[in-house]
């Protein structure tokens, strides 16, 4: 759906995007994560045609986004990181205003607006003035607005920031619905847990560089590799540690009260061999497992590196 290749963007001497590439398949919910100032908004603005890149390629559903601007505009729905409110406008009028921009007027506009507002659970707020809505409601109204022209790719810049947990939960539900409707969604956040459970893929960006990108599973697998093995034994702990230290594929050994953490560089095959070796040596092992990483620990680990 979206292919970004070697995107570069500088603000004066400051390099905001450095050869950034990413790829999102149809129907994915892609989490674009990175600390503040990493370049998420810059990337999203470029993809939405609001900012010119210095170099790089962007293809949306096969069309060259830098050449076919109208094609780009019709296939994306962009929601900026700050929600702008027009004073003295009702929610339904806000929707109808954008419908009219797309040439939808009158009864059709009203029906579409109401349908979309229902989709984001705002049916009862149609006649409320926009400036009186809560932040979460404004956010959802803005989301409904991005859907007016039925775009296939949604670009949502930090839609969950500043929302209370309940509003965030609601937003998640809506995003899941949209995904079921077949939308591809690119969503950014500077906080990973916001996205961790619902994304199918993530890309982690820092200083304008993509650090890792891929499906959640593949990233976890890659990162799990470097996670330590945790071993529990009934007795002969010191002897076990001495034994481990002799091995070339184990290092960084640390001990807590009853667990031994071993940084192990081998693959699963070699880990199995390690276990059978230890048992053959007569150690009475009760637990032998790779520490399970969370996406968050992966994130922290990557950012630290």
């Amino acid at each position: 759906m979206l292919e970004i290749e070697n995107l570069n963007k500088s603000y004066g001497d400051f390099k905001a995007l450095d050869n950034l590439s990413l790829s999102i398949d149809d129907g994915e919910l892609y989490g674009f994560v990175g600390p503040n100032g990493a370049g998420k908004t810059t990337t999203m603005k470029i993809v939405s045609g609001l900012l010119a890149a210095d170099s790089g390629q962007i293809h949306i559903a096969g069309i060259d986004a830098r050449k076919d601007i109208q094609g780009l505009k019709s296939s994306i729905g962009y929601m900026p990181d700050f929600f702008g409110v027009y004073d003295n406008l009702k929610a339904i009028e806000y929707m109808e205003f954008f419908a009219s921009i797309y040439g939808i007027d009158g009864r059709a506009a009203r029906k579409l607006s109401l349908d979309l507002m229902e989709l984001v659970n705002l049916s009862d707020k149609a006649d409320s003035y926009v400036d009186g809505l809560s932040r979460g409601m404004k956010q959802r109204l803005c989301l409904a607005r991005t859907l007016i022209h039925n775009p296939s790719l949604l670009i949502l810049d930090e839609p969950a920031s500043g929302l209370d947990p309940r509003a965030r939960f609601e937003m998640k539900g809506i995003l899941n619905n949209l995904r079921e409707m077949g939308k591809t969604i690119l969503i950014s956040s500077h906080i990973l847990p916001e996205l961790a459970e619902m994304c199918s893929s993530v890309g982690i960006i820092e200083h304008g560089k993509m650090l890792v990108s891929g499906t959640v599973d593949s990233i976890m697998q890659k990162m799990n590799r470097s996670n330590p093995i945790v071993i529990k034994t009934i007795d002969r702990k010191d002897e076990l540690i001495r034994k481990l230290k002799e091995r070339p594929d184990a290092d960084n050994i640390s001990i807590t009260e009853d667990e031994i953490y071993v940084g192990f560089s081998g693959d699963d095959e070699e880990a199995a061999r390690l276990l059978s070796d230890l048992i053959a040596d007569g150690f009475r092992i009760t637990s032998f497992a790779k520490e399970k990483g969370s996406l968050e620990s992966v994130f922290m680990q990557i950012i630290k590196e």
């Binding site: 045609g49 900026p80 702008g84 027009y86 921009i101």
Partner: peptide, 16 residues
């Protein structure tokens, strides 16, 4: 004013 309200960006992503 539209810029400050961040509504300009939205308008610019429409076919307007």
């Amino acid at each position: 004013g539209e810029r400050e309200k961040q509504t300009l960006d939205i308008l610019l992503t429409t076919p307007l």
